[in-house]
Design a binder for these strands. Structure first.
Lengths: 350, 350
DNA sequence: TTTGCCTGAGATAACGTTTTCTCGGATCGC
DNA sequence: GCGATCCGAGAAAACGTTATCTCAGGCAAA
């Protein structure tokens, strides 16, 4: 409690009549310590209100208990939920989250990754903003610490954790088919993002018996409601045979749903993706991504890579530190869940 | 480039043939250094790819260039935008953001604040989750570092930066009155949050000539679309004289707007608050908060308080460190902006 | 009893910076 | 030309921990 400065281990040691390393040993539970001393130390620490200095600890032990999370754009309503999932899972493990927004710009992304490295984060979770040009900065970082891609993906050289888009679209199609749909079309965002591209491909290719012979048209448009409205109106006019619109995200689906309702085409089923509150608000069937599971797996991959505890099936170890993070190039997919609402259950518009 | 370890100042010093402190002086531009040496140092640093270790720097100088931001719930669509604004403004100044989500729980909030303190953040921005019970943890933190409340407020003992709810509601009412409204009602979220409470009070009390004699009814309901729908339906049924619904946030407004449209009451104007993409998506007139300005001001207050550069008008300085952050208990309001859309322009529903 | 080992605690070093101290040499004034 | 002053660079200390080394004492085995 001295004057203005904080209580340090030295103060605790003095108060307990032991040496500084002993205080450290007691508080970290590392070695065996005389119960008598241990009690004295704990009591003193408690009484003085000692709280360890995380910075000093990080410097000495070179473990900062800090993760960096780089996301393309937090204004995109999908990412706040991802951030939340990661943040909660991390904090539960005594880690803390250093958040960086890449502003959808590869240059900014590169910069923030470098900055996070300087701050000695223990690992990096990145949702790369560009399918191709984000790779180099991530690989550079991976030379020093574990780096895991989450949701979006820019390189197969690094582990990735994401949702099973293919399976999700499959589930959506089966859900629609069960509701009587036979001629669905797809509207997705511009495919500079990997998950969006996968959804589009899945829609076009995933096998569904009942849809044999239907050519499955696909369209893309910017992720804003106005663009979705315009495109949907055009589709309704030119392709009156279409009986469902599978959308690549909730924003587009919202616009599509609105136009369908207004046009009196309540027979057209509409589905979204991401299960944002837009879906809940507008009675839109959507796909929920397993965010907690994504966070869980991504973090586990990082911690595993850092601990070097992995099964050494990798053979050659000549590459040294580069191999450390690259060792496990796991690509993990987690299953999504279709949340059915009024937009796909015949006419029952909320 | 040695082996696995990172390049340190010592390496640079050795390569440049100078001492370590000289490298520090050159790279921080502090003291005057022989241009010749300076050039050698820079060249060496560049060649070796030296990047300073932020942890060591923080330990020695006790400035971590890190801000903590504590928000009640990042799933609430207002906060991601606040986070973004803060993050961008900070990163522009060479700071980095340690993000913590309090999960709408005072106990969690207390815990994360303590954790951020341990990590030597330079300052703390908090949007307290409880109007009353959040205060103590914040005040405790304020004994060590600058703490500023942002958006929500829990105590007058600490500075606060937020939107001018009063003025915003005034603007909304004038906008409505100009559109012919004379009998508006208010629907807000449950008033455990300070800004929501202020909006409700402002609606009830702000002077608007054209509304003299109207009793301005107010209602509250949980912030979800279903509850808003139900309440709105009830209001339409019991108070058919009402000609506008001023809502405390976009979620409630969305539900209200939907019910009004469905009931054929396109004569009822509806306004939201927060200018989330829900507003844009549904053609809802809403109120945009000046997030960048909030972030800017909050950060400036923190940096100012830390630098002790304030005008010493405070008189007594006996209280010491407590005074350091409490010194400026500024309460700053920033003006909002009404974004007019179809929901308030007669019948022109998008 | 003596030797060797093991346990547990203090002393010391280390992490990579920045800050403070010290000191040689150049500058300036007289 | 000489002493006081200042400037700039290196040496050393410091920040608060954890890791390593050292050593005294206890205990078991010979």
């Amino acid at each position: 409690m001295r004057d203005g400065t904080r209580v340090t281990m030295r103060d605790v040691a003095a108060a307990a009549g032991v040496s500084v390393p002993t205080v450290s040993r007691v508080l970290n539970g590392a070695a065996t310590v005389d119960p008598e001393l241990s009690a004295r130390v704990r009591k003193a620490a408690d009484r003085l209100g000692y709280r360890p200095n995380a910075i000093a600890r990080a410097l000495r032990s070179s473990v900062s208990h800090t993760f960096g999370l780089v996301i393309p754009d937090i204004a995109n309503p999908f990412f706040p939920r991802l951030v939340k999932a990661v943040e909660q899972r991390l904090r539960g493990s005594g880690y803390v989250l250093l958040l960086a927004d890449a502003q959808n710009d590869v240059a900014v992304e590169r910069e923030v990754i470098a900055d996070l490295l300087q701050r000695s984060v223990d690992a990096l979770l990145v949702s790369p903003c560009d399918r191709e040009r984000s790779a180099s900065a991530m690989l550079a970082a991976a030379a020093e610490i574990p780096v895991v891609q989450i949701d979006r993906r820019a390189t197969a050289e690094l582990p990735w954790v994401g949702a099973d888009q293919w399976g999700a679209i499959h589930d959506v199609l089966r859900h629609l088919v069960a509701a009587g749909v036979r001629r669905p079309a797809f509207i997705g965002p511009l495919t500079t993002e990997s998950p969006a591209l996968e959804r589009l491909r899945a829609f076009a290719e995933v096998p569904v018996g009942e849809l044999e012979g239907w050519d499955r048209p696909t369209f893309t448009c910017p992720s804003d409601v106005a663009a979705a409205r315009a495109l949907t109106a055009e589709i309704l006019a030119t392709r009156p045979d279409i009986d469902a619109l599978v959308c690549g995200n909730d924003v587009i689906a919202f616009g599509a749903l609105e136009i369908c309702r207004r046009a009196g085409r309540s027979d057209i089923a509409v589905t979204g993706f991401d299960e944002t509150f837009l879906a809940e608000a507008s009675g839109l069937t959507s796909v929920e991504q397993p965010l907690s599971a994504l966070a869980e797996t991504a973090i586990r991959l990082c911690l595993g890579a850092g601990g070097e505890a992995g099964d050494g099936a990798g053979g050659a170890e000549g590459e040294g530190r580069r191999e450390r993070a690259g060792q496990a190039r796991e690509q993990v997919r987690h299953a999504c869940r279709v949340v059915a609402r009024g937009s796909t259950t015949s006419g029952a518009t909320v």
